[in-house]
């Protein structure tokens, strides 16, 4: 079937299988491999992207459901020279180690900051419950989100 999506500001019309997932379209068809797959039960959050402005698990969205949507991935929020404040905060606070959960974590954190007026540490911890990280113990991720909160 044919789907049309806008990804990081560029419109793509693609012929995909009916059972294609959004994450498969992003990774395999558009080469946007920054979005990762870390589980098969929709829980780890490594695949989080923004769809029409909200954080979603791209492994749990069918391509058909994303037809007509505006999708933003980790590749679309900033560049090496002009990082998004959340990317910058992750680097500055050492909020990543192996980097595998990082794209999903950053996309989740951006939505969290954008939709919550007054985030404190507990709200950040609660807000990130849909994203697993095995490296950092979350300590520096929480610091980074709180730092970015003040710069976004």
């Amino acid at each position: 079937m044919e789907v049309t999506l806008s990804v990081n500001g560029t419109s793509h019309t693609l012929d995909v299988p009916d059972n294609a997932l959004l994450v498969e379209v992003l990774r395999e068809r558009l080469g946007l491999t920054g979005t990762h797959v870390g589980c098969d039960t929709s829980q780890c959050g490594a695949c989080v992207v923004h769809m029409d402005g909200r954080a979603v698990k791209s492994c749990t969205v069918l391509a058909g459901q994303a037809d007509g949507a505006d999708v933003t991935t980790i590749e679309g929020i900033g560049t090496a020279d002009e990082l998004h404040p959340m990317q910058e905060a992750f680097r500055e606070c050492h909020a990543l180690q192996c980097g595998f959960c990082t794209p999903g974590m950053i996309m989740a954190a951006i939505d969290l900051v954008q939709t919550n007026g007054n985030l404190d540490e507990q709200a950040v911890r609660d807000g990130l419950e849909g994203n697993l990280c095995r490296c950092t113990g979350y300590h520096n991720i929480v610091r980074a989100v709180l730092a970015a909160r003040d710069n976004m």
């Binding site: 909200r54 954080a55 979603v56 698990k57 969290l112 419950e129």
Partner: peptide
Amino acid sequence: IGDAHVRNR
């Protein structure tokens, strides 16, 4: 319910 991403969908 669930987590933030689940609640969004």
